[in-house]
C-alpha cells in the first residue's frame, strides 16, 4: 500500500522534493526522512513541489514546522510551489501561508532563492 512516494532532485543548489500521494500520520516519516536527508547534506534551500500532493494532514505540517527553525537558522528556507486547491485551502484556513512562502510554480520558487546565498550552510 504505497500512499506516498517522494522523489528529490537538485537544481542550482536548491533541493526539490516531489511528494506524490498523501502525507498523513502513516506516511509522515517518509516525508520527514527526505527533508532530513537534505539537512544532513547541509542543504537548507528547499522547495517542496506540491503538484502531486493530494492531501496533507497536521502530521505533515508538523514535519515542516519541526525543521524550519534549523533551516532558517542556517540561512535557508522551505518554500512551497504548485499547490492543488485542497492543499491550498488547508494552508489558508490554518494560516500556514503566513509562515511559509508559497509560489504558483516551481520555477518561481527556485528563482526566489537567487541572491540568498548558496545552500545556506554554515560554511557557505
Amino acid at each position: 500500500m504505497s500512499e506516498l512516494n517522494v522523489e528529490s532532485r537538485e537544481l542550482e543548489g536548491v533541493v526539490l522534493l516531489y511528494p506524490k500521494g498523501f502525507v498523513n500520520a502513516h506516511t509522515v516519516r517518509l516525508f520527514e526522512g527526505e527533508i532530513q536527508k537534505a539537512l544532513d547534506r547541509s542543504q537548507y534551500q528547499i522547495v517542496v513541489n506540491c503538484a502531486g500532493l493530494t492531501y496533507i494532514a497536521s502530521a505533515g505540517l508538523g514535519a515542516l514546522m519541526g525543521v524550519i527553525e534549523e533551516v532558517r537558522h542556517n540561512g535557508g528556507d522551505i518554500r512551497l510551489a504548485d499547490l492543488n486547491e485542497t492543499v491550498r485551502n488547508i494552508f489558508e484556513i490554518l494560516g500556514f501561508n503566513h509562515l511559509y512562502r508559497i509560489f504558483p510554480s516551481e520555477v518561481e520558487a527556485i528563482l526566489s532563492f537567487r541572491g540568498e546565498g548558496e545552500g545556506g550552510g554554515p560554511g557557505a
Binding site: A25, A57, S58, A59, L61, G62, M65, G66, L99
Partner: peptide, 20 residues
C-alpha cells in the same frame, strides 16, 4: 519511539508551533 515522534509532529502541525 515512533509513537513519541508522531505525537510531537502532529501537535506541531496542528498548532503550527515550531517546537514541542
Amino acid at each position: 519511539e515512533a509513537i513519541k515522534r508522531l505525537v510531537i509532529t502532529t501537535v506541531m502541525g496542528h498548532f503550527l508551533a515550531s517546537r514541542a
